[in-house]
Amino acid sequence: MADYMPLEKQNRTGSLLFLFSASCIALIAGILFSLKWGQAQVSWSTLFDALAYRAHDKVHLYIQTLRLPRTLATCIVGIQLALAGLLTQLTTKNPLASPHIFGINAGASLAVVFGLVAFANLSLYGSMLLAFVGAAAGALLVWSLGGTGNKQYVRLALGGIAVHFLLSSLTEGIIILNQYSTESMMFWLVGSVSQAGWPEVQAILPFFIGGLLLLGFMMPSFRLLLLDDEVASGLGQRVSIVRAAGIVLVIVLAGSAVSICGPIGFICLIVPHIARALVGGKLTVLVPMTGLLGGVLLVYSDLISRAIAFPFESPVGIVTSVIGGPFFIYLARRKGRSNR
């Protein structure tokens, strides 16, 4: 028995290393294919010359100024949305929770669209600020509907869905009433990374780095959210403060991502479940795997979206919805059977 446990631990470590290595290779391969494939044909040698900044002709500048920032923004947004989904599920103790379903993404979208209509020359940082305000307002509204008590998490789910549809309807109403000034937003509202450039990468990078650092710093505290509230409180921990910090981090990660690429659906929901099925529920392993798989899924979804109506662009949100819709139905049915 004493020899069996170390062997089991070695097998577990080996499988985790394999999964992380495979995920990293898949992400790197997806980034390279995203940089190479598009309307303009690019050879591998030209691509590597452009990445090394060894040449500055038209093709190299095309890769450096258009494809490279778009791919980096796609990877960053995928990581942020996946981690925001994991934190939402932890803080609400609901496996079907996500910023998209709980009104956070819808609140950010409504604020950005309203800002576009109200302010003629809305800057990138202005839209990000509005996205944070809208995401925070959506989260507070949903949380206020949850109340307290044993049924809090059920009410949070129902209130989140209601708030999501309410805010989405208001967004659509603003667009209908201001068609000329919001015509360019239709692509963005479905979820699109086609317009992401170096300014967007520079704008989101501080929130990405700061969010990851805060998540790493708060990791020991977030482990309390895996316990029952009564047990964690009995251990002398302030569960409400930890949960509030988690919601703030969700707003930072999801709000900044939505301001850049729109409310891309289902990344927040499905990636944490895939990561949990692969590596288990230990947060020190689950968090990095969730981030990796979020980047992988969105990078490859962007590649697929380019092929749908090639050579024209399609919103990446179409692909994530096609993937995530059936997965959400499967999760809901499995959750219902487990409750019965």
Rank of each mutant, 00 (worst) to 15 (best):
D49T: 15
D49Q: 15
D49N: 13
A50K: 07
A52N: 14
A52Q: 15
R54Q: 03
H56N: 08
H56Y: 09
H56D: 01
H56P: 01
K58A: 04
K58Y: 03
K58H: 00
V59Y: 02
V59L: 03
H60M: 04
H60L: 03
L61R: 08
Y62R: 13
I63K: 07
I63P: 11
T65M: 06
T65P: 05
T65N: 13
T65D: 07
T65Q: 10
L66K: 05
L66W: 03
L66M: 00
R67I: 08
P69Q: 07
P69D: 07
P69S: 07
P69N: 06
P69Y: 06
P69F: 10
R70G: 01
T71K: 03
T71A: 05
T71R: 04
L72C: 06
L72M: 05
A73H: 07
A73K: 10
A73I: 12
A73L: 11
T74E: 04
T74W: 10
T74I: 05
T74D: 05
C75G: 02
I76E: 09
I76T: 06
I76R: 11
V77Y: 09
V77F: 06
V77Q: 07
G78K: 12
G78M: 10
G78T: 08
G78N: 02
G78R: 09
I79W: 12
I79V: 14
I79N: 05
I79S: 02
Q80Y: 11
Q80P: 01
A82N: 04
L83N: 08
L83K: 13
L83C: 12
G85R: 15
L86P: 12
L86S: 14
L87E: 03
L87T: 09
L87C: 12
L87D: 02
T88Y: 14
T88V: 14
T88S: 14
Q89G: 06
Q89S: 09
L90I: 07
T91Y: 15
T91K: 15
T91S: 15
T92S: 04
T92Q: 04
K93M: 12
K93I: 07
K93S: 11
